[in-house]
Computed example of a mutant assay.
Amino acid sequence: MSSIHPLSMASPYIRIAHDFHTEENMRIGPTRIVDHALHYFKEGDGVYTVGNRPTTIKAGSLFLIRPGVPFSFSASPGTRFHMYNLHFDLIEQEDSAAITFPYPKQGEPQRVPLPCCLPDEQEMPVSGLPSSVPLVETATYEQLFFRILQRFGQPNTIALLQSKSAMLELLALLLRQTENQHASSTSDGTYETHLSHAVAFIQSRLHEPISLDDIAKAAQMSKSYLLKCFRNIYRLSPIKFVMKQRIERAKCELLYTSKPIKTIAGETGFDSIHSFYHTFQREVGTSPGAYRALAHSTALQQEEPE
């Protein structure tokens, strides 16, 4: 009988949601926190160390830090980071609201016991989340982060529930991608490597036409094997995966920029505004303009005092 994953019991308390640019040559730690953190690097490069394992930071890198685990990171000389920063308790505790700053100050009482912790890949080899998360769907992650950020700190029940829901979706995304990575690995690791090349190619060219031949060439796989891999791991064909990523990127642009819809259509690889409208309506259930208006209307309502 399979055991219940700890995420199935999650009711997250979000402590910090922050979109920020660091100073040049930023360095943090070694230090520890009393909650979980997700550090997503939108831009920049450097080195991130969890415990005693260093990992290279590049655009799109994501790191999961657990309570009490030592970590540090630093930017490469002369560079800075653009980061999306989340701190949270997996399950809301009696002291969650009282802990406003997750870095314990010297001489102050520690948080004892530390809150419920997400299992890692050693505790749960198939479905534990590693400290360096193999993030594939960066556009989806960014959209979920901004859903949380948009509602963070709003003093009403609807916004609280919406932010919890988005946080759970984000954690489910990470778990699904980690399980997919595990399922895709083989004895020599080539399956996973080729797929990562395919996805990186797609993510970097969403503004351009992308064919199945293009993806297969980037992955160095036959088209038939590429189709089999994508359907096994992502439950989508490569072309459907491309379309999903285009729509997720378009959602982010509609929500968090004031770009004209025609511009967004071009930047997400649609050859005409009519094709964009038709596809967006089919995939999302509403038009791009209505999606943008609804999101902005919701945000304004949440800013009004109760």
Rank of each mutant, 00 (worst) to 15 (best):
I210R: 10
S258C: 01
A218K: 07
T268A: 01
S275Q: 13
T193R: 12
I247P: 12
C229K: 08
E248L: 02
E208F: 03
L195N: 07
C252H: 13
I264F: 01
D214C: 10
V242L: 10
Q245G: 08
I239W: 02
G269T: 10
S237E: 10
A219W: 05
L206M: 08
T268W: 05
A200C: 08
F241E: 04
L236Y: 03
S211P: 00
S237R: 06
V242Q: 09
I215N: 04
M221H: 07
I239F: 05
Q245F: 00
S258V: 00
L195Q: 07
E267N: 15
Y277M: 02
A250W: 12
L195T: 02
T193H: 07
K228A: 09
P238G: 02
F276E: 03
Q203H: 11
H197V: 02
A198D: 03
D214H: 11
E208G: 00
I261L: 09
A198R: 05
M221R: 09
F241I: 01
I247Q: 14
L227W: 02
A250P: 13
S237F: 02
I215V: 13
E208M: 14
E267A: 14
E267R: 15
I261F: 09
Q220A: 12
L212E: 13
S224V: 13
F280Y: 12
S211Y: 13
L236H: 15
S272A: 09
S204P: 01
L195W: 02
L236C: 14
Y256V: 08
A265M: 04
L227D: 07
A250G: 06
H274A: 11
H194G: 06
I202Q: 10
D271G: 06
L206E: 03
L254I: 04
N232F: 05
T279A: 13
K244E: 13
P209R: 10
S204V: 03
P260L: 09
T193D: 03
V242Y: 04
N232W: 05
K251V: 08
L254Y: 07
I202T: 14
Q245R: 12
I233M: 10
L206W: 11
M243V: 13
I273N: 05
A216H: 01
K217Y: 00
E267T: 15
E248S: 12
P260C: 04
A200Q: 15
D214I: 06
R205C: 02
K244T: 11
L236T: 07
S237D: 03
F276P: 12
R249I: 06
R231M: 15
L195F: 06
R235N: 08
I261K: 05
G266S: 04
H207V: 01
Y256F: 08
K217W: 01
H207Y: 10
I239T: 10
T268E: 07
F276Y: 06
V199T: 13
K251R: 13
S211K: 04
G269Y: 07
M243G: 09
N232Q: 14
S222F: 01
A265K: 11
L255E: 12
R235K: 14
H274Y: 02
L226I: 07
T193E: 06
K240Y: 02
L195M: 12
S258Q: 04
D213G: 14
K228S: 01
Y256H: 09
Y225A: 09
S224H: 08
T193C: 08
S275T: 07
T279P: 08
T263G: 01
K217T: 14
R205S: 06
P209H: 14
E253G: 00
R249Q: 14
L212V: 04
R205M: 03
A265E: 09
